[in-house]
Design a protein around this nucleic acid. Structure first.
Lengths: 323, 323
DNA sequence: AGCCTTATGCTCAATTTTAGCATAACGGTC
DNA sequence: GACCGTTATGCTAAAATTGAGCATAAGGCT
C-alpha cells in the first residue's frame, strides 16, 4: 500500500508470458505502398512475427531473425512502433491464461523482392484500408461507410462519437482529411463494428463487416494502421522516404512514393521546388528516358542534409484534390 | 528453417520474464519542468515503476496502479514511449537469467502536488540533463563536455562519431542546436563514458562520469531523455502543452511552460500571435495582476481546435538566443 | 511535322515568419 | 502626482515560404 520499492525479484510472479514480435515491412513499388504479409495458420493474412526467444540479444535482433526465417527478407531501417498488452489479447485456455504482449515494429525496405517464400507476399496496404487512398479523389468506400458511421454516432448518448468522427474522417462541414489519423479511423470502424476483426471476439450482432476491406489475423490490422499513421507523420520531418528509394531515382518517382504513402496527390512543381531548395537530393549527372516523355534527371539522396538542418523532411504540398 | 507459422503456444518457452512498467511523469511549475522520482532501494533516484501483474487489464492500468501506489499521484494524459528489452538489461543470476522487459510511459499532470509520499519528489529534469537547458544561453557544462567529446570522436577510426556529434550537439561550424535530439545526446554521452550509468556495467576505465549531472537507477535516465525528446517534438504538432496548464492561465505562463520544456527562449510577441491566430486559446474575461506589471488577460484552452485543424501545435518561434 | 507525355523553369499573389517599435497599464518610489 | 521598472499588447515592414499556374523543353510515336 505505502512505500513500495519497485522490481523486487523475489515476488516475481510465475504467470505464463509470451512476448510476440511483429513487423510491418513496407516497400513502395511504382505507385503502391506494399506490406509484406504471410499466410497465417488460420488462413488469415498476418504480419511476419514470432515469439521473443532466449537467444535474442535485443528485441530488434529477435524480430530480424523471425522475419528472415519467415520471408527471406533482410531488413534495413527498423523502428519500434508500439507494445500491445491488453489482457484480452491473450489466449484464454482456462483459468491459467497466457498473457501475450506484442511489440510491433516498422521496417522500410528498398526493393520489394518477389517474396522469397511461398507463404509470404507483398500486398498493397490499401487492400486493408481502401478508405485511406485519396489519390484519385474521395474513395468510393466512404460513401457506404459514412451513413453507417453517422448512424452509429447518432445512437450515442454523449456527443463524443460524432466529435471523434469529424476529427478522424473530416465528416463535419469544415472537416478536413488528415491522412495521419489512419489509426483513429481504424479504431472507430472497429468500435462501430465495421471491420471483421471487431465481430470475432464477441458475436455481438452489430453491423456487418465491411465488404471491400481485407481482414488480418489477431490485431495485425491495427498494427498496420498504426504503421501507416506513423510513417505518414514521420515522412514530414525526417527524410525516411529515402529508405524506400533506390540509390538513384527521378523526382517524379520520389513524388509518387510520397503520394503512395500519404494517399494524397501533390502539386508537382511545388514538390520539386521543396525537395530541391531543401537540398534533399543531388544530381547524379545521369538521366533516364524510361518514363515516356522528356527524359528526367536522376538524383540521389544527399546524406549531408542529416547534418545540416534539424528536421529535414518532405513537407507535403497538397494538390487540388482536397475535399 | 522454412515455412514457420508464428505464435504456436505449444513451443512456448518457460523463460523467466518480467515486464516492468515505468512512468516519466512531467509537470511544469513556474519555470521548471519537473519529473516525479522515487528513491530507489539502491539509493539511486528512479522513476515510479513496478512489474506488470496478472490483475492488470492493460499495461496502462498497471502503470497507473503502480504510480498511485508509489506516489499518490493520479495520472491524466498518458502515452506509451518505448519498450526496452535488451538482454543485458536483465539481472544475471547464474545461467537462468531473468529477462526484464520494460515499457516506459510519458504522463503529463497539471499540478505538481507536493509529492504525496515521502519517497517521491518532484525534481527539475535539467538536474539530470544540465546540457539541455539553453534558456540562458549555452549551458556552461558544455564547455567541459565539448573537448572530451571531440577527443572521443577523434579517437574513432571511421568518421562516424564526429558526424553523430555534430548532428546531436551541433558542434560543427554550421551546427545548430536541435532541442529534439535529447536522446541522441544522452546516448552519445553514454557511449563516451561521460555519464555515470555507462561505467556501472563494465568498469571500463574510460572518462570519469560528468560532475554536475545526476544519475538515475538502471536505464531510467535514458527513459527520461526519450521522454524529453518526444515531448519536445510532440508539442509542436499536437496541443499537449495544455495538459500541463491550469484551467486558466496567461499567455506568458504558457510561453514559460513551452520554454521550460524546450529549453529555449521564444520571441514573446510572435509567440502570442501564433497562439492567438491559431486560436488555441480563448478569453476567460478575467485578468490577473500577479505578474508585476500590467495585468494580463486570463485565457483557457479552446478544445474545439482539436476538431478544426489537422495538426494544431505550438510551433516554436525561437528567440535571438540561438548559438 | 504534329501530337502526346513528362520534365523543368519561372512568376505572382497569398500567407506566414522574423524582428522590432511603440504604447498601455499596474505597483512602487521619491 | 511625476517617474521608473515591469509586463502586456498592438502593430508593422521586410523576408521567406507556399499555393497555383503558365510556358517551354525534349523525348517517343504516328
Amino acid at each position: 500500500m505505502s512505500t513500495q520499492t519497485p522490481s523486487r525479484p523475489e515476488v516475481r510472479q510465475q504467470t505464463d508470458l509470451v512476448i510476440g514480435l511483429s513487423a510491418v515491412i513496407v516497400a513502395v513499388t511504382g505507385d503502391d505502398p506494399k506490406v509484406l504479409v504471410v499466410r497465417h495458420c488460420g488462413g488469415r493474412e498476418a504480419l511476419p512475427s514470432g515469439p521473443l526467444e532466449r537467444g535474442h540479444r535485443t528485441l530488434e535482433t529477435g524480430l530480424r531473425n523471425w522475419v528472415e526465417r519467415q520471408t527471406l527478407q533482410k531488413l534495413g531501417y527498423v523502428e519500434q512502433l508500439y507494445t500491445f498488452g491488453d489482457r484480452d489479447r491473450s489466449e484464454t485456455d482456462g483459468a491459467n491464461a497466457t498473457r501475450a504482449l506484442s511489440v510491433a515494429y516498422l521496417a522500410l525496405v528498398r526493393e520489394a523482392r518477389p517474396a522469397g517464400d511461398a507463404d509470404a507476399a507483398w500486398q498493397s496496404w490499401y487492400r486493408y484500408f481502401p478508405w485511406e487512398d485519396w489519390r484519385d479523389g474521395r474513395p468510393p468506400v466512404l460513401d457506404a461507410l459514412e451513413p453507417v458511421l453517422r448512424d452509429w454516432a447518432a445512437a450515442d448518448v454523449r456527443a463524443t462519437r460524432g466529435e471523434r468522427l469529424s476529427l478522424a474522417f473530416g465528416f463535419g462541414e469544415r472537416g478536413v482529411w488528415d491522412e495521419e489519423r489512419a489509426l483513429e479511423r481504424y479504431e472507430l470502424l472497429y468500435e462501430a463494428g465495421l471491420v471483421g476483426e471487431a465481430l470475432r471476439e464477441q458475436n455481438a450482432g452489430r453491423a456487418a463487416p465491411l465488404a471491400g476491406s481485407v481482414e488480418m489475423a489477431v490485431d495485425h490490422r491495427r498494427m498496420l494502421a498504426l504503421a501507416i499513421a506513423r510513417l505518414r507523420g514521420k515522412i514530414k520531418y525526417r527524410p525516411v522516404v529515402f529508405e524506400l528509394m533506390p540509390p538513384s531515382f527521378t523526382l517524379l518517382q520520389l513524388q509518387r512514393t510520397v503520394e503512395a504513402l500519404g494517399g494524397v496527390r501533390l502539386h508537382k512543381q511545388n514538390f520539386r521546388r521543396l525537395v530541391e531548395q531543401q537540398r534533399l537530393v543531388e544530381e547524379t549527372g545521369e538521366a533516364t528516358a524510361e518514363t515516356g516523355g522528356r527524359p528526367a534527371r536522376l538524383v540521389r539522396f544527399r546524406r549531408e542534409v542529416l547534418l545540416e538542418r534539424p528536421a529535414p523532411g518532405v513537407r507535403l504540398p497538397v494538390a487540388g484534390g482536397r475535399r
